[in-house]
Design a protein around this nucleic acid. Sequence first.
DNA 1: CTAGAACCGTGTACAACGTACACCTCGTTT
DNA 2: AAACGAGGTGTACGTTGTACACGGTTCTAG
Lengths: 253, 253
Amino acid sequence: MKDDRNRSVRLLWETPAEPTRGPKAALSQARVVEAAIKVADAEGIEALTMRRVAETLGFTTMSLYRHVPGKSELLDLMVDAVWGETEQTPKTTWRDGLDFYARQLWSMYCAHPWLLQLTNARRMPGPNAMTRTDAAFAVVSGLNLKPEEIVAVVTSIGQFVAGVGRTMADRVLAERETGVSEEDWWNDRDELWEHFTPERLPMMTHIWTTGGYERPLDEFEFGLARVLDGLAVFIEAEERQREAPLVRRETCL
Amino acid sequence: MKDDRNRSVRLLWETPAEPTRGPKAALSQARVVEAAIKVADAEGIEALTMRRVAETLGFTTMSLYRHVPGKSELLDLMVDAVWGETEQTPKTTWRDGLDFYARQLWSMYCAHPWLLQLTNARRMPGPNAMTRTDAAFAVVSGLNLKPEEIVAVVTSIGQFVAGVGRTMADRVLAERETGVSEEDWWNDRDELWEHFTPERLPMMTHIWTTGGYERPLDEFEFGLARVLDGLAVFIEAEERQREAPLVRRETCL
DNA sequence: CTAGAACCGTGTACAACGTACACCTCGTTT
DNA sequence: AAACGAGGTGTACGTTGTACACGGTTCTAG
């Protein structure tokens, strides 16, 4: 059963029948997942080892494998458990809805920065993640967009939040891991700044001396406003084009 | 000298004096970096081990440490070497300039997807990366933006490309690593689709049946156009009324 | 009522990783 | 000729995920 390609599908989407025989389990899948999330929250993804999770639960490392097939599947379960903590996007205007969706993602990433240290490619999507995404699709469904445009719009929001979040997460996790603040770390590399000369880096030194790095804009708020503005331009243009009688585009049912 | 905090600064920004004594080096830092990039290009970052690099060069693992202080510093050198392959943004309009900058980043990420598997937090910036960034700042310097707004505008482009790139990179590297195409992999998980019912996921099933996933829009092109549109709205508004204060909201981190 | 199947948790073991350390061998400087 | 600094080698250690064998516990089939 090693190469059962649907094992992780069943793991996430189906609740297995309870065993009738054998001793009562002292541990459970839910407790393993919960403990793993707690470890990752506190110490980052590189501290998340099977040994560490087992230790916090007071069991041996190998006992975890009775409840979870492997580390990869444990990560799948952790991710979908965290999606379950978010609220579904309510039905409102497209802009309010996407704003809500973006902020839900943002607070999810803030609470669990390790999410952004994980690959998303070929990660098995769980029911929680899918229902949240479905609700996000719904808020842009009344705009007469083509189906692939709906996907593109929601995806662009998701990717924006993930992009900004990753920078934030890397910073937070590095601070937590090393115990050295971002500022202290850069100040320790004092010889670096000697190479930042106006001849070599005119703009950066100018921005530095005029205080551009001292009071940076909030990356999330600034970027979100820009992306939503950009989507507004697109959506309005798309609606105008659709109302024009001559330039009928093919609608897929 | 172990905790010399400026060691990596000198490594990237200064060329060390050539040694006078001892045997001629059969290896060099440049060759190590080059070989490492080649390995990462072909097999991804998780295949980039000191043993693997040494093997492709025909030397022992420990010989690398004569030319590179450690793996972390090797990564710094690889990153800046790759930045050196890109062209600097020429001086044009802000929109053409940012478009150029975005496409440079994009082609860099396409050529070296492993860049996006690396943390950016506390990575020592090298001279190539800094001059490229400086040139990008320059194209938005004629707009009378506040210094922190210049940083925010360029950063938002960088983060957009990194966000889209990461999705692309994860996919490409997973295919290269496993030898299984994305499509085949998802087709193997056939039981997953049985859970995608219209009751549970109405929008997704609708988009699926209307072909929204069959001809997806280009994420890079779609997103870039949206972000540039959004920045245009901001820049025009900013030019119109310079005296209006900018609204800043608090976020969780 | 008993044999055995199913299940839980433990302990040992292995290959791969980064790299510290001791070592020998060159080539230049004193 | 002796000393010294540098390049490359080989061994060894602590980590990681997890395969495998094992012993104890609980329910089911005969």
